[in-house]
Design a protein around this nucleic acid. Structure first.
Length: 553
RNA sequence: GCCGCGUUGGUCAAGGGGUUAAGACGCAUCCCUUUCACGGAUGAAUCACGGGUUCGAUUCCCGUACGCGGUACCA
C-alpha cells in the first residue's frame, strides 16, 4: 500500500534532496520495505546535485515572464541546495542584439538572483554561450542521421515557402514538413545514397531534420501538469542543425542540458508543443532516464483581453513590462522598467512569485529567504495569470512600509537630486522618509511627499483657509511664533502642547487652527501630522513659513 | 484546420464529493484623523455550459463553448 503512494514521490524528489527524513514522514510504520527502497534510491543518487538552468536568448530586455522563470528556477535550486546556471542561447545570429546579454545579467543582479554559473560567472561546464559551443552540436546531429533518426534536407527557405503554398488547403492552412510529405522533398530519405553524398561533397547548403515517427505516443511527466500525451505523427520534422551549422533550440537544449547535467528544466508553457521533439532527442541521444524533470510554467497574460503580455501592452496601458529600462540599440527606443519606476527588487520578485504560486496559507508578503524556504514547484498553478499593475504597486507599497528606510535611502536621495534638490543632511532625510513612508507607493513618491521639507512651498492652498480666517486667528499665529522661540525643547509633543495651550487661552478651537498651520508649512492639505512636520522643519523655518503666509492672506 | 494547455468574483487566488466557497488587490460606504495616507469595519460569486457517476457535485468522468499556446533554418 505504502509503496504505491510513495514511489512517485521519490522519483520526483528524493534523488535530488539531501533530506531523506522529510520523506520518511510520509511512511506508515508498517511500510518498512518502502523505507528501504527510499534509502536505496537516496544512496544511489545522493551524489547528483540538483541543477537548474535559465536559458534566455539575448534579443532584448528581460520582461516579467522571463524574470519569473528565472525566479522559479532560482528558488527551486536554492531550496534544494542546487546550482542555478544561466546559459545564453544565442544560436540565431540574425536576432542578436548588442547589450542584451549584459542587460540580462544586470537585471539578475538587481533582483538578487545571482547565478552560480554563467558566461560571466564562469563554471565547470563552460562555455555557457551556445554560439561558443557551435562545434559540439554537429556530431550529435550526425549521430542521429547515422541511426536513421534524422536526415539531411536540401531545401532553401524559398523552396519551403513554395511547398507550404502548394500543400495549403482550407483544412490545412499551415502544412508541415512531416512524415506525410518528406518523401516528396529533397532530402537524404527521398534521394539515393549517392545523390546525397554528392550534394554533401559539393557543400550544397543543407539542414539536418529529425525524423519524427509516423505514429507513436510520447508522454511527458510534467511536474506541474501531470502526464501530457502527444502523437509524434502530428509534429513536423523539426530542423536540428541549421544551414549555417548552428543548432536550433531543439538540439541545443537537449545537448546542453545533458552536457551541463541539468536535473530539472523549467520554462514557459509556450514550449509545451515541442516537448515530444525534446523527449525523442533525449531517448535517441542520452537515454530518457537521464532526462531532466520538466515543468512548464503558466504564462503571464496582458491585463485587458487575452494573450501573452508584451512590451507593447506596457506602453499602451502605462506600466513597465521590463525589469529595468531597456534601450533598443537599433531604434534608440526606450522601454521603461520596474526599477526606474521606483520598485524595490524585493517587491518585484515577491509580486512575480505570487503570479502563479502561493503557499496555501494566504500569506502574500514573502522575503526572498522565505520564498526559498517555502517554494515548491507542485504548488505552481496551471492557468495563466493576467498581470495587474495595481496589485504590483500594492506589493511595492507594502515593502516600502516594511523595509528599513536605510535600505532605499540612496535611491531616494538620487531621485531628489535628479529633480534639483541636493540633500546633504542625511539625518533630516531619514526623519522625513520615516514620517512619509506610509504614503509612498513608488520611490519617486518620496519626492512628492517630502519635497516641502526641503524647500518652501511655492504656492499655498489659500482657499482652504480663507473662508474661516479672521483677525483673531492671525493674532494667534503671531503670538504662537513668539511662543515657539521660547520653547525649551523642540519636539512634536512640546510644539503641540504650546499650540493647544495658546489656543485654549485665546478661546479658539485648536482643530480650526491646525489646517491653517498645515497650509503655512506644507502649502496644501497633505502630509504627516503638522506638529511632526514643524519638528522636522526646525524653529527658524517654521516661524518663517508662518510669517510668510500671514503676509499673503 | 490540426496538436497541446487552460477555465472559482473586475484581477490574483484558497479549497476540492456535503463549506455561510478563505484571503488579497481594486472599487463603494463607514469609522479613525478637522490634511493626505496608514489602520479598522462592511458590501458584492447561481465555482464557463451541457450531460453523466453519486443520496449529494464547484470538486470525479465525458462532451461543448470560449480563451491561450504551438504549427519557422525564432527562441
Amino acid at each position: 500500500m505504502g509503496i504505491r503512494y510513495v514511489i512517485p514521490y521519490t522519483l520526483y524528489l528524493t534523488p535530488y534532496t539531501l533530506h531523506p527524513t522529510l520523506y520518511t514522514l510520509h511512511l506508515t510504520p508498517s511500510a518498512y520495505s518502502t523505507s528501504i527502497l527510499i534509502t536505496v534510491i537516496s544512496l544511489q543518487t545522493m551524489h547528483q546535485k540538483l541543477r537548474v538552468r535559465f536559458a534566455p536568448s539575448p534579443t532584448g530586455g528581460l520582461h516579467l515572464g522571463g524574470v519569473r522563470t528565472v525566479l522559479f528556477n532560482y528558488l527551486f535550486a536554492k531550496k534544494n541546495g542546487g546550482d542555478f546556471v544561466v546559459r545564453i542561447e544565442d544560436t540565431d545570429q540574425t536576432r542578436f542584439v548588442k547589450g542584451a546579454e549584459e542587460y540580462i545579467f544586470k537585471t539578475l543582479s538587481w533582483c538578487g538572483l545571482e547565478p552560480d554559473e554563467s558566461p560571466i560567472h564562469g563554471g565547470p561546464y563552460a562555455p555557457y554561450r551556445q554560439s561558443e559551443r557551435k562545434s559540439i552540436y554537429r556530431e550529435y546531429a550526425e549521430q542521429l542521421v547515422k541511426a536513421d533518426k534524422a536526415y539531411y534536407a536540401f531545401e532553401l527557405p524559398e523552396e519551403l515557402e513554395t511547398m507550404r503554398d502548394m500543400y495549403k488547403t482550407p483544412e490545412n492552412p499551415s502544412p508541415q514538413y512531416d512524415h506525410r510529405i518528406r518523401m516528396n522533398m529533397r532530402n537524404s530519405l527521398s534521394m539515393t545514397l549517392e545523390e546525397t553524398e554528392r550534394l554533401l561533397e559539393d557543400k550544397v547548403p543543407h539542414v539536418i531534420r529529425i525524423k519524427m515517427p509516423e505514429s507513436e505516443t510520447v508522454t511527458l511527466h510534467d511536474m506541474i501538469r501531470g502526464d501530457v500525451n502527444f502523437n509524434t505523427g502530428t509534429i513536423d520534422d523539426k530542423v536540428l542543425l541549421k544551414a549555417d551549422g548552428m543548432p536550433t533550440y531543439h538540439l541545443a537544449v537537449v545537448v546542453d542540458d545533458y552536457l551541463m547535467k541539468i536535473s530539472h528544466a523549467f520554462r514557459g508553457e509556450e514550449w509545451l508543443p515541442s516537448v515530444p521533439v525534446h523527449i525523442l532527442l533525449w531517448r535517441y541521444l542520452f537515454g530518457e532516464d537521464n532526462m531532466p524533470q520538466w515543468a512548464h510554467l503558466p504564462l503571464i497574460l496582458k491585463p485587458d483581453g487575452n494573450g501573452k503580455l508584451s512590451k507593447r501592452d506596457g506602453d499602451r496601458l502605462g506600466f513597465p513590462v521590463f525589469a529595468m529600462d531597456w534601450t533598443d540599440p537599433k531604434t534608440g527606443e526606450t522601454t521603461s522598467g520596474f526599477r526606474e519606476k521606483g520598485f524595490l527588487p524585493e517587491a518585484f520578485i515577491n509580486m512575480l512569485a505570487m503570479m502563479g504560486w502561493n503557499d496555501g496559507s494566504g500569506q502574500e508578503i514573502f522575503s526572498k529567504d522565505e520564498l526559498i524556504e517555502k517554494f515548491s514547484i507542485e504548488r505552481v498553478h496551471k492557468a495563466g495569470a493576467k498581470f495587474d499593475y495595481e496589485k504590483a504597486k500594492w506589493f511595492n507599497h507594502e515593502w516600502i512600509k516594511a523595509e528599513e528606510i536605510t535600505r532605499y535611502q540612496e535611491e531616494v536621495k538620487n531621485i531628489f537630486r535628479k529633480r534639483g534638490i541636493e540633500i546633504n543632511d542625511t539625518n533630516k532625510l531619514s526623519k522625513v522618509m520615516q514620517s512619509v513612508k506610509d504614503r509612498c507607493t513608488l520611490l519617486p513618491d518620496f519626492y512628492d511627499q517630502g519635497k516641502f521639507f526641503f524647500e518652501s512651498p511655492g504656492q499655498w492652498d489659500l482657499d482652504a483657509v480663507k473662508p474661516k480666517w479672521n483677525a483673531d486667528k492671525a493674532a494667534f499665529f503671531v503670538e504662537f511664533s513668539e511662543k515657539l522661540k521660547l520653547l525649551s525643547e523642540w519636539s512634536a509633543p512640546s510644539i503641540e502642547g504650546s499650540f493647544k495651550e495658546l489656543a485654549a487661552a485665546k478661546n479658539i478651537k485648536a482643530g480650526e487652527l491646525q489646517l491653517p498651520l498645515r497650509i503655512m508649512l506644507v502649502g496644501e492639505k497633505k502630509g504627516p501630522p503638522v506638529f511632526e512636520i514643524a519638528a522636522i522643519l526646525g524653529l527658524d523655518e517654521t516661524v518663517q513659513r508662518i510669517s510668510l503666509l500671514l503676509e499673503k492672506i
